[in-house]
């Protein structure tokens, strides 16, 4: 579909301006395959729903709104595979002192700023398939008791930037391949479902200043109240779950036919929950 700048892009990469466009976009394509349902937030259309806020709500990023617009347009025209890292890690605090110190030890923050850009450090939770992405969109979500300008940051970082480390759990695909077969693990044997945790090493350079999206003098807890909320991904997530439950319900119906449980009509309850 056409972009605002005279080019063209996929539907999800353009922020909708009315209900009709919203109905057509936002990941509401019911014709996806089963493999998509478990990829969920790793899907490019989910990322596109995120990136739409850069164009739709660019003024949130003032005084860097031009950077937000630039990334919005770049993602439309070049459709890079963009990762997202918005959730802070859970920190375990056993004492009052540890509770106060821990967030500032682990949350993403600026440690140095030069004309060339920001140097950041900290850990974030990233999406499945992150290692395959070109860029990582780092933002924050929700309210956290951390105050300070250095924490009020939203930025893009190339996933292969020096110092970026991705930590991954055990590979389901590898386990399935070594101990089973596609017949035994029809979903987990599919590639690319490794959720990774992003750890910026000390002093990762998060691109040049022109790429920086947000850093204001207000603390994160307060800036979150007016945060660039992410309504379109919410709709994407809901539709994804609806399709996933369609799929699981189909499996359950077949299972009840095989075991004979269908005679007892036990399958009627999850169908109503869909």
């Amino acid at each position: 579909m056409p972009t605002e700048w005279g080019g063209f892009t996929h539907r999800y990469f353009r922020a909708p301006t009315n209900v009709d466009e919203q109905v057509a976009g936002g990941g509401r394509d019911r014709g996806v395959g089963a493999a998509h349902l478990w990829l969920a937030r790793a899907l490019p259309d989910y990322k596109a729903a995120f990136l739409g806020t850069l164009g739709a709500n660019a003024e949130f990023y003032a005084p860097y709104q031009a950077n937000a617009k630039r990334w919005y347009r770049f993602s439309q025209e070049r459709v890079p595979f963009i990762n997202h890292a918005i959730i802070h890690p859970r920190w375990i605090a056993t004492s009052r002192r540890a509770r106060q110190a821990a967030p500032t030890d682990v949350c993403a923050r600026v440690v140095k700023e030069t004309d060339a850009g920001l140097y950041v450090t900290g850990a974030k939770v990233v999406a499945t398939g992150s290692a395959l992405t070109h860029f990582t969109f780092v933002a924050h979500h929700g309210l956290h008791p951390v105050q300070g300008k250095n924490f009020a940051i939203v930025f893009m970082v190339p996933t292969n930037a020096k110092g970026v480390k991705l930590i991954c759990r055990v590979s389901n695909e590898m386990r399935a391949a070594m101990l089973g077969s596609p017949f035994d693990y029809p979903l987990s044997s599919r590639p690319g479902r490794e959720r990774r945790h992003l750890r910026h090493g000390q002093g990762v350079r998060a691109l040049g200043g022109r790429v920086r999206l947000r850093r204001r003098g207000e603390g994160q807890a307060t800036s979150s109240r007016g945060r660039a909320s992410f309504p379109a991904p919410c709709m994407h997530g809901c539709t994804r779950l609806a399709v996933k439950l369609d799929f699981i319900t189909g499996l359950l119906i077949k299972a009840t036919e095989i075991t004979g449980a269908r005679v007892r009509s036990a399958a009627s309850r999850p169908i109503s929950a869909r």
């Binding site: 301006t17 739709a56 709500n57 660019a58 949130f60």
Partner: peptide, 10 residues
């Protein structure tokens, strides 16, 4: 409808 771009969101 929100933002100067008059974007629509749920």
């Amino acid at each position: 409808i929100r933002g100067r771009a008059a974007a629509s969101c749920p």
